[in-house]
Design a protein around this nucleic acid. Structure first.
Lengths: 352, 352
DNA sequence: GTGAAAGCGCTAACAA
DNA sequence: TTGTTAGCGCTTTCAC
């Protein structure tokens, strides 16, 4: 097979990869080569004090020349303090997750933990697969999981496990609760108080297939109901969780319901796409149609007009998850983990 | 110490974390409890065929109840096919890196590899520290490194190592070369051909402290020189590598040089910040001042006017790095690794 | 300052 | 179908 050339890329790889993996150089080989015991090599490698500096250097040089590198497995087996946690996110390309990741990485680093990252795309199959991996590969899991069977599997096992968004789950399930109810309420009431009555909702289509309670959508219905505002069910449009998805959903919405005066989006990505498309279609924002997002992504400040949104402290979310994982790892039982709630804050910019 | 409460966050953690780590349950304990040999337990856990389904279930139940989870270290020691690679990036919050990460995660997943992620912030100390970790914790490293001593350390060791941006380094250093020269040339010539003569450059200040060749800046000087266009050295402003950094640098630039007609930015983040600030200050884009970015981030499409930029296929960059790591891991020597070059593509949107 | 022995928890190979 | 033996590569005693 010839090397394939991607657009804008020169150079490629043939599939006949050499597989003559050089066998691992072990500490014993280095010991033998330098004429000392394996113990002395260990001392040299680990910078212990009880060793002749000269011997140390000789050993280090030989080790380097021989291509020696200690096996993390052998080490981990004997030392019990090497901790790796698994971070499961839905989509690296959704700016929400890099911010969470930043919080996790920082908190983990402070503790000297390694972080393995997994991406699920919120696909059920992938989520289940990743949860399985987790059990084998890490000491604790921190995960954003949509599908209830993946969550069930994850929490049923013996792995310390923290949910990044525990939703309405039992107190015994460790995780952070994002107060969507409070957030959605504040957001919708803001819209209503500004006179909006025909408020559409652009929902995340992933929730349609997942057997997960869809808090934001239910809340939309609930708050509108409480305020006595009739809702046309077609005001709710499912959108792919992306900017393009938001744009497409907005176009669908407008083709049927030109008369909506505001859009409450599942999140900022969808809101941004929707707003962009609405403007491209000639609507003025917020005069003809107002837009309200959820998440508080910094890219919301880039669009015109800047997006009004419910801001979530995503970095803190990641940090808290690590703190909970630390408690679990420290031996605390699930139901002793203190409850943590993140409160979305309404940030009024200019789109609503 | 009382629990601290972050803004918008309820709940906190006291520092007196219980540290009564429950001792690990081993396969032998499960064996003993179920009255079989440890081998049979191993068979049950690993879903081997040669086992009585009934026995298997009994063992599985007991294991679950006892909180047993196999040790990845013990396993890794015995099986030689568990591969973990380290991905070192500068900043999760710069959208450039999530895209690279997406490529790496995908390619790694196809191979069944784990990916540990490290963030350096491009700080020299952090880079050196992370390189050290790498040697201990992973089978191969893929890294974006700025500081030459960190790079030297990384490539000198025995760890298979791939640079995400090898710049002008020797062919024997595995890594991907991003053709900044071709890119910058195409970009600058585009500006020059559109009649621009007073073209400023907003540079990444991180290169000032790092002992790294700054390709983009040199190229700017070179191309301008070739075209016989005089450059005022104050047209070059250092910027923090962020949107805010770009904005601040633009303001500095304008206070001294109102007369520049175009800005060539180190990357999209800086370009976006600069353009936003320029417009806030009353300039029309591109009429009063044109903006050209580098990287081709998708957020460039969100600003108004959309950013003209030199697009890098970041996902492919990550994939290639994994392919190179695979070759190295397969036993191929550094200088046999086929050269890979990523060619930035000029995407003309509306800012220039 | 250096070495020998023991053992971390698991799976592969072989034996029963 | 199950058990026994050996050993993966390293660090931690403890002895010299």
């Amino acid at each position: 097979m010839a090397a394939r050339y991607a657009e804008g890329v020169r150079g490629g790889y043939s599939p006949n990869v050499p597989t003559n993996r050089k066998p691992r150089v072990t500490i014993d080989q280095v010991a033998q080569a330098t004429g000392v015991s394996r113990q002395t090599v260990s001392r040299a490698i680990n910078n212990k004090t009880e060793i002749d500096p000269e011997t140390r250097q000789r050993i280090l040089d030989a080790a380097q020349a021989m291509g020696y590198r200690p096996s993390r497995f052998a080490r981990g087996l004997v030392r019990q303090d090497l901790i790796t946690i698994g971070l499961v996110i839905a989509d690296v390309l959704n700016p929400f997750f890099p911010e969470v990741t930043a919080g996790v990485l920082e908190a983990a680093e402070r503790r000297g933990w390694q972080v393995v990252v997994y991406n699920t795309g919120s696909e059920r199959r992938k989520e289940l697969e990743v949860v399985d991996m987790l059990f084998d590969q890490v000491d604790a899991g921190i995960a954003f999981l949509l599908h209830h069977d993946a969550i069930a599997k994850a929490t049923a096992g013996n792995l310390p496990f923290v949910l990044l968004d525990k939703g309405g789950r039992a107190p015994a399930v460790p995780g952070v609760r994002i107060d969507f109810e409070g957030g959605a309420r504040r957001g919708l009431e803001y819209l209503i108080d500004r006179g909006h009555r025909r408020i559409a909702m652009l929902d995340d289509e992933a929730y349609l297939s997942a057997e997960a309670p869809n808090t934001r959508r239910e809340l939309y219905l609930k708050v509108m109901g409480e305020r006595g505002i009739p809702v046309d069910i077609n005001w709710i449009q499912p959108a792919h969780n992306s900017i393009d998805g938001g744009a497409a959903a907005m176009e669908r919405l407008l083709s049927a319901h030109k008369d909506v005066t505001a859009v409450f989006a599942y999140n900022d990505l969808i809101a941004i796409g929707a707003q962009l498309r609405a403007r491209a279609l000639g609507l003025r924002v917020p005069e003809d149609c107002a837009f309200l997002g959820f998440d508080g992504l910094s890219i919301g400040e880039l669009v015109e007009p800047p997006l009004t949104t419910l801001h979530i402290d995503k970095r803190r979310l990641g940090e808290i998850a690590v703190e909970q994982a630390a408690l679990l790892l420290g031996g605390m039982s699930e139901n002793e983990i203190p409850e943590a709630v993140i409160e979305p804050q309404l940030i009024v910019r200019a789109s609503a």
